[in-house]
Design a protein around this nucleic acid. Sequence first.
DNA 1: GGTCCCCATGTGACCGGTCACAATCCTGGC
DNA 2: GCCAGGATTGTGACCGGTCACATGGGGACC
Lengths: 345, 345
Amino acid sequence: MNVTGHTRRPASIRDVATAAGVSYQTVSRVINGHPSVRPTTRERVLAAIDELGFRRSATALALASGRSRAVTVLTANTTHYGYASILQGIEEAARAESYAVGIGVLESADEAAVAAEVRRAAGAGGGLIVIAYDPAGVKALGAVPAELPVVGVVETPASTPDPGRPWVWTDDREAAYQATRHLLSLGHETVHYVAIPSSTRRTSARTSGWRQALREAGAPEPRPVQGSWGPAEGHAAGHELARDPAVSAILCGNDDLALGVLRALHEAGRSVPGEVSVAGFDDAPHSAYLTPSLTTVRLDFTGLGRAAFALLHGVLEEAARIAPHPVSVPELVVRESSGPPPATT
Amino acid sequence: MNVTGHTRRPASIRDVATAAGVSYQTVSRVINGHPSVRPTTRERVLAAIDELGFRRSATALALASGRSRAVTVLTANTTHYGYASILQGIEEAARAESYAVGIGVLESADEAAVAAEVRRAAGAGGGLIVIAYDPAGVKALGAVPAELPVVGVVETPASTPDPGRPWVWTDDREAAYQATRHLLSLGHETVHYVAIPSSTRRTSARTSGWRQALREAGAPEPRPVQGSWGPAEGHAAGHELARDPAVSAILCGNDDLALGVLRALHEAGRSVPGEVSVAGFDDAPHSAYLTPSLTTVRLDFTGLGRAAFALLHGVLEEAARIAPHPVSVPELVVRESSGPPPATT
DNA sequence: GGTCCCCATGTGACCGGTCACAATCCTGGC
DNA sequence: GCCAGGATTGTGACCGGTCACATGGGGACC
C-alpha cells in the first residue's frame, strides 16, 4: 500500500469518510461508539480506519470539545523517592482513565520562575496537580490562576479547605507521633528530631506530632535540628548530635536524612542501636537493606498520587466527583536501627 | 475586573483583537514578534493582551501549525534513580526550549500493553523519547510507527544506527571495564559479577566490559549471577556468593544490587572490604553515605537525558539538528567498599 | 394509505490559532 | 502630482475534530 518514502500527513476522519463512502460525522459517531449507526456502516468505517491507520488526534479533540483529558504535575523534584512515587501513582491512575500526564519541574523557588512555570503548565490545558511539599511547590500552588482546575498534594491541610481546589495529604502528624512513641516506649528519656524543611512558615505536621508525643510522655523537648532533604544534610546534623552524649534517640524527617545521620554516628564511633537509636520517615526502598536496617514510618505515596488524580478527575468531570479525600494511614516499620537506650551505670 | 463567579472562557486572539481594535491576524503577529507591526499598534495589542489575561492556547497552536513542541517520555519506571535522573535531564533541556514534557509508564512488558501505551503516546503529538533499558522499553522502541520522530535511550547501540531515529547511550562497557580493572588492580584474583537484566538477548555492555577486563588480566571468568534491579535481588545474590569462600570481589550491575549484596555479606559475617570488596554502578545519591561507603562508577544520567532531548529537537526542527551524539564518559568513584583481598596464609 | 416518530446519516458552524494572499497606507523619486 | 513599492493591516481558508440541527427512509399505528 502506501509505502512512499516521505512522511505523509496522518489520516483524518475526512480521509476515512471518503474511503468508507460516508460523511465525516458518521466516522465521528463510530469512533465515539454512538449507538445509532447501522452495523454494516460501522463495519465499513472500521475497515477504512484500519486500512488507513487512522488515529484520532488528541489535539483536535481537545480544541473542539474543550475536554483535554490531560494533567500536568508540577513538582520541585523528580528523583527523590517520595516525589517520584507520587508521580508514579498519578500516572498510574491517569493511565487507567486514559489521561495524558505532563510534568513541569520547579527548578527554583524564585517567585518569577515559579510563575513562569505555572503559566507554561496552564498553557498545556487540562488540570494541574501541584506537589507542595517545599517552598517552590507552595508558591506554585498559590500562583495557579483561580479558574484553573488544580489539586494540591500538601504537607498539612490549611484551616480553610476550598471545595473547588481540593488537597490530599498523608497524616504526617500521626506518623511522627507513632514513631516518637515507639522510641519513647523503648525507654529513651527523650527523642531528638532532625527536621525536613517546612513548606510553610508554620510548624510542620511532623514536628508537631513529635512534640505532642514528647509532651504526653512528659519528656524534655530538645530543639529540632534543621536539616534539609538529602543525606549530606543528615550527615552534618548527625555529627552535631553525636557530640552530645545525652542523645540516645533520633527521629529524622526522612530516610535520606536518617542515612546521613547513621553514617555520622558510625564515624563518631557511636553504635546504632546500642548507644543511639535512629528512626526515619517514608520507608524508601533501600532502607530495609541498610546496616543497621532502618526503623521508619511507611507512607503510601503511590496511593497519595492516585488519590490526587482521582480528586482532579472529579473536578474536571462532574460524573467522576468523589468525596473530599481519604487520608492514608501511616504504618510504623520497626527494624534494627531502634532499640533500648544503653543501661545507665 | 471581570469577577463574575462562573468560570469564563479564556480570551482568544479575536477577543484581544476586538479589544485593541485590530484584526486577529495583527494580534497573531504581535505574539509571534513579527517585525512589521507599527509600534503604537503593538503597544495597544499588548495592553489588550495584558488586560484580558490572554494566553495563547498550545492546543490550537499545535493543531494549526503542526509543530507541537511536546515530547513524551516512555519508560518502565519513574522511581529508580537512573530512570528518574534521565527524565529530569530531559525535562530540563525541554523546558529550556519551552517544550512540554509528557510521560507514559510501561507497566508491563506484555506486547499488547506496550503497543497500547505507544499508541497513546503517539496520539499526544510531538516527539517520543523511549528509555529502552529493559524489555518493556526495548519493545516499545520497536513498536513506534516509522513516521514518528523518536529517540531511544539504549543500553548499547545496535550495529545499524538509523539516521532518522537516533540513539543515546552511556559507555557502559568502558564503565564496567574500569570498575573491574580497579578491583583487579587491588590484587583480587578475579571479580564476580551480579548482573542487571539485559534489555536484549545479547550480552549486555556491562557484562562484556567486565569480561574483557578479566580476559586481559588472564583472570578466571566466573559465571555472572543473574540479578534484577532492586536491593532484594542483590540480597539474594549476595547470600549465594557469600557461601563461596573464594569470592573476594563483587561487581554489581547497579548500586541497589550492591546495597543488597553488602547487606547479605554483613549477615553472613563477611567484612567489607576486609574479606570481600564490592563495587556498584550509577553512583546513586545514597551510595556515598552507606557503611561502608560504596565504590561505584558514576554515570551522567542527567546529561544523557539532555542529550536525548537535543537529538529529538534536531529531528523535529531542522535548524536544531546536531551531531549524532556525544557519549558521556563514566567516572570511577573509589570509596570504602573496595580494598585489597585478605592476605592468604 | 396517511401521519407520527425514531433511526441513520449529512450539513454547516465552530474551537483558537496559522498560513497565503489581497488590500490599504505611506513614502520617495521623478 | 503621479506612480512604484515596501510597510502595515485585513480577509478567507484550513488544521481535525465536535456540536447542533436538518434531512431522508422505514416501520407502527390508526
